[in-house]
Amino acid sequence: MTPPFSPARLHAEAGEPLVLARHGFFWTGVEPITTDDGPAVRGQTYVEYWIPQDLRHRLPIVMIHGGGGQGLDYLGDVAGGEGWVHRFVRKGYAVYVIDRPGHGRSPADPKIQGPLGPSLPAPMVERLFSAPSRFPDRYPGAELHTQWVGEGRYGDETFDAFLAGMGPMNADAAQHYTDCRRGGVELLDLIGEAILLTHSAGGPVGWLLADARPGLVAGIVAVEPLGPSFQGAPPGALTWGLTAVPLTFEPPATTPEDLELRETTLPSGVTAVLQKEPARKLPKLAGVPVAVVTGEASWAMGTDPGTVAFLQQAGVAAEHVRLADHEVRGNGHMMMCERNGDEVADVIASWLSSKDL
């Protein structure tokens, strides 16, 4: 029997060749420090680039992973197939995929990078990502989840492979996102104007980069970004609306307490925390088109409406792209890794095309 990941098997099962003009990596956000052991660096971001031979789009896509994941979330599905990196490269986009500081190939030494929080236990990963329909206390809509490959439970081959790539986040959310912003700003300064594709706890990075470099962010696709606005749960309270560190508001807000808040029920029935009117605006994000993408069977169906409402109230051109409205069904929070990830990528590509991106 031919081993499943042998060159012969992978070559035989390959479809259309993936032809690249360039493929490589570099680092951004490297901060020199002095430790008890001598000079060191911290806060670095690993960046891997994929440049197609058939480059059909002027703007590259920067893919920013979520939570305890890493850039490999975009490099394949849980069955070992191609991921969103390959799918967008095949569509003619240059892609830059990062490992946020302390994740994946970006080192996570707590003595240098800062203390780490706990990793998610396997049952929590099952409940939130891979097998929500199997839990009696499941969130609304979890019963619709159908797109995970395999049983989605500990001991199943595809689940264990997914769990193997997960790790803890930095315990200090403000420090982590400050590091992410520094590395992301340097990345944009190096590559020029780009589209940001963020996921989950990578969502704040998109808002922070658009705030810091509005002329270099052409659009944001936020796949179930960390939220809703002003939430206080791990991985860090969103004291500035959708981030744990300051954004530029108009009129200016010097502390989170300057943002007067109110709880409201949205037309969808979801409860959200928004600003009191007249709301402060986010002027640096005002010219950036935003799509917030939500899976039909994800818990984010209950959080993303609040995120969209906060952005719209702050003057951001944000649209809520519900996959079910595009007849893409059964997706949970890790939609890029699920069996129909190509269909989700097509919805995103269609939105980008509608914005001439």
Results as ranks from 00 to 15, higher is better:
233 A>K: 01
243 T>G: 11
251 P>T: 12
118 P>Y: 07
233 A>Y: 03
293 V>R: 05
225 P>S: 03
285 L>V: 13
97 V>E: 03
100 R>D: 03
127 R>Q: 09
260 E>W: 00
18 L>R: 06
229 S>T: 07
296 E>H: 07
149 V>Q: 08
177 Y>M: 01
81 G>H: 03
2 T>Y: 08
69 G>P: 02
350 S>G: 07
348 I>Y: 05
124 M>K: 09
145 H>P: 05
304 D>E: 08
57 H>E: 13
249 F>S: 02
142 A>K: 13
114 G>H: 01
256 P>T: 04
22 R>S: 10
34 T>K: 03
135 F>D: 07
215 G>S: 02
19 V>E: 11
106 S>G: 08
346 D>R: 10
157 E>G: 02
62 V>R: 15
247 L>P: 02
82 E>P: 12
32 P>K: 05
134 R>S: 11
268 S>T: 15
192 G>C: 04
341 G>R: 05
56 R>M: 11
341 G>E: 04
171 A>H: 10
32 P>W: 05
87 R>D: 13
348 I>A: 06
355 K>N: 06
100 R>Q: 14
198 T>C: 02
27 W>A: 05
47 V>A: 14
330 G>E: 14
95 V>L: 15
132 P>R: 09
250 E>I: 01
236 G>M: 15
38 G>N: 08
211 D>Y: 01
22 R>I: 00
226 L>D: 00
44 Q>R: 15
25 F>D: 10
167 G>L: 07
247 L>A: 01
101 P>M: 14
120 L>F: 00
205 V>D: 06
153 R>M: 02
221 V>D: 06
82 E>Q: 13
71 G>R: 01
184 G>L: 02
249 F>W: 08
295 G>E: 08
245 V>S: 10
276 K>D: 13
277 E>S: 12
348 I>C: 11
187 L>W: 12
312 Q>M: 12
113 Q>I: 00
322 R>C: 14
15 G>F: 11
99 D>H: 10
149 V>L: 04
246 P>M: 04
130 S>Q: 00
150 G>R: 11
201 A>C: 00
346 D>K: 06
339 R>I: 12
82 E>R: 11
357 L>T: 12
144 L>W: 09
127 R>V: 00
170 N>E: 08
97 V>T: 12
44 Q>G: 11
65 H>G: 06
31 E>Q: 08
220 I>H: 07
167 G>Y: 06
233 A>T: 10
213 R>L: 05
350 S>Y: 00
301 M>F: 01
282 L>Y: 10
8 A>N: 07
354 S>A: 15
111 K>V: 04
6 S>C: 09
116 L>M: 13
329 R>M: 10
200 S>H: 00
212 A>I: 10
241 G>M: 09
97 V>M: 04
220 I>M: 13
353 S>K: 06
87 R>H: 14
130 S>R: 01
39 P>N: 04
320 H>A: 13
84 W>F: 03
103 H>W: 07
123 P>C: 03
33 I>Y: 01
181 R>M: 15
96 Y>C: 15
243 T>W: 10
172 D>C: 02
86 H>Q: 14
252 P>S: 11
354 S>G: 09
7 P>N: 13
46 Y>F: 15
259 L>F: 08
12 A>S: 12
193 E>G: 04
163 L>T: 03
182 R>S: 07
